[in-house]
């Protein structure tokens, strides 16, 4: 009998310590102050919602498997491809200096196309127009690697998208998508990432849905995942028919969601569940 009580007591102690641990983790989440008129008081990176172990994996430049993608693309950056006999480097020079801040400001307005383009599209425009090479397919390892590499050059710099001028209708459209309920589960982005962020759901903490770490190494997929694929995944999970990657809808959403995380440091390549 006595032994059983000891066991129970141990179980209770364990349960209490797990509960306090969860609270402690909650209180530790650090964010940055949001600009006036923002939806959040504090903008918190998805990093803060992850476990100690996942955060450690992201912080160590060697252990972080996202750097495999960065290194792969660093070689491709110098590789000559296409009819023009050019590499990325022929025009842009050293990525470390000349690509600084580029990724943090995407998506950006393109005067020629009269629409915003994101990093993946910009890379492919470069490939097809300036290099006369085949554009890479979305979700291909090459495109995701290069996106990660270019965005990594802005590592630690604040997300700084422009939402005024010609971007404003796109911003409004993104906002509308963010607050629209989709799918059989009838959920909007807002339902989870605004109203319920920080809560424990499906064995995980709901984050604010920030994009500062994308493309991000997902432990679940064991590879680097681009943002639009994550958007697709979210829509699939609410049993909606997802928009197409690189579609105008996702582009507007990317712009709007980037604004929701304005000022957060770029963490690419982040490590997430």
């Amino acid at each position: 009998m006595a032994r059983r009580y000891v066991g129970m007591a141990a179980a209770i102690v364990a349960a209490v310590s797990i509960a306090t641990l969860a609270v402690a983790e909650d209180a530790e989440r650090k964010g940055i102050a949001a600009p006036p008129g923002h939806v959040f008081k504090t903008i918190v990176s998805g990093y803060e919602f992850r476990s100690k172990e996942t955060r450690a994996l992201q912080d160590d430049d060697l252990e972080n498997p996202g750097f495999l993608a960065v290194e792969r693309a660093a070689d491709v950056w110098k590789k000559v491809e296409g009819g023009e006999g050019k590499s990325c480097m022929s025009c842009h020079g050293e990525a470390e200096t000349n690509m600084k801040g580029v990724g943090a400001a995407m998506p950006k307005w393109d005067d020629k196309l009269k629409k915003p383009v994101n990093l993946e599209q910009r890379i492919n425009i470069c490939r097809s127009e300036h290099m006369k090479a085949e554009p890479w397919k979305f979700k291909s390892r090459e495109l995701t690697d290069m996106t990660t590499f270019v965005r990594y050059q802005s590592h630690g710099m604040p997300v700084a998208v422009k939402t005024d001028g010609p971007m404003s209708p796109w911003f409004e459209r993104g906002k509308q998508i963010y607050y629209t309920r989709y799918g059989q589960l009838d959920l909007a982005c807002e339902s989870c990432h605004e109203r319920n962020n920080g809560k424990f759901m499906r064995a995980d903490f709901l984050s604010q849905g920030q994009t500062n770490g994308f493309p991000t190494y997902r432990l679940r997929d064991q590879r680097v995942v681009p943002l639009h694929e994550r958007f697709e995944g979210c829509m699939f999970d609410v049993r909606a028919e997802p928009f197409k990657p690189l579609s105008d809808e996702f582009l507007a959403l990317e712009l709007y969601v980037a604004w929701r995380g304005i000022g957060l440091p770029v963490e690419t390549p982040a490590v997430r569940n």
């Binding site: 060697l62 498997p65 750097f67 495999l68």
Partner: peptide, 9 residues
Amino acid sequence: IKTLVSHVM
């Protein structure tokens, strides 16, 4: 010594 290799496994 730390090592990391890229492989699909």
